[in-house]
Amino acid sequence: MKKSNNIPLSSERAVWLRQQKKRRISIKAWQWGLLIGLMVLWELAATLNWIDAFLVSQPSRIVGTLLNTSKNGLLTHIGVTLYETLTGFFLGVIFGLSISVLCWWSPFVSRVAEPYLVVLNSLPKIALGPVIILIAGAGTKAIIFMALAISLIVTVLEMLSGFHHTDAEIIKMAQTFGASRKQVLSTIVLPANLPTLFNSLKINIGLSLVGVIAGEFLVSKAGLGYLIVYGGQVFQMDLVMASVLILAAVAALMYQGVSFCQKLVSKRFGA
């Protein structure tokens, strides 16, 4: 709300505005405070030997490891994971969108595919790991494949449900002007489902990361998943914790990236 310059605020309004501001500040303070408090507590507990720092690590050692690893190629590991995740993510979006458009286009195909989609959706795709490795080879390709397998079906189901729920009366309106199926798709169904697409993208980031990390656990020579497995094998929990922390940061950044794109697109379409 913009403050108007010539009309003085009523005292109730001023009090209300102050309360709102106080509340916002208090929420931010708690969010940061909680994080810092936990870190301090963790550090303290480890130093005072309440917990075994060898098993659960501690913030100062994580920072040390990060500085240490960054000298010997931490950025490469982050880069590899990022590359695999983004490739899997974009492939999942492109294929998912194409399949859902196909299913929308032909109700017959949609009905035929329905039981397959439902079963594939509930199947843990990681179980296909060995098959994927045999087909794609034990390397980056298999990992990207895994990310794709995990995010693809969810995208198809999410988008298809959005397409099917497009306002039927708006479609009828277009048909009264003689719109072809292609025109209905491009002028109504696709733009009407932009919000659905962005919701699906947000879910897919997490899913692609799951696929990539699982893939890196199985086969890899680099990447954050590799670092985690390696750290676990040589009992270097500092490395495991440091990698998990970076992973959290990567996930958060990618989520923010999608949110940012959503804002840009919404602005373009005035929503």
């Binding site: 009366e169 708006i170 309106m173 009264t176 109504i188 733009p191 379409f269 005035g270």
Partner: peptide
């Protein structure tokens, strides 16, 4: 020309 129950304007245009 055909007018339906609601205005069916496209919100993104």
């Amino acid at each position: 020309g055909y007018m339906l129950q609601r205005d069916n304007l496209l919100e993104w245009r």
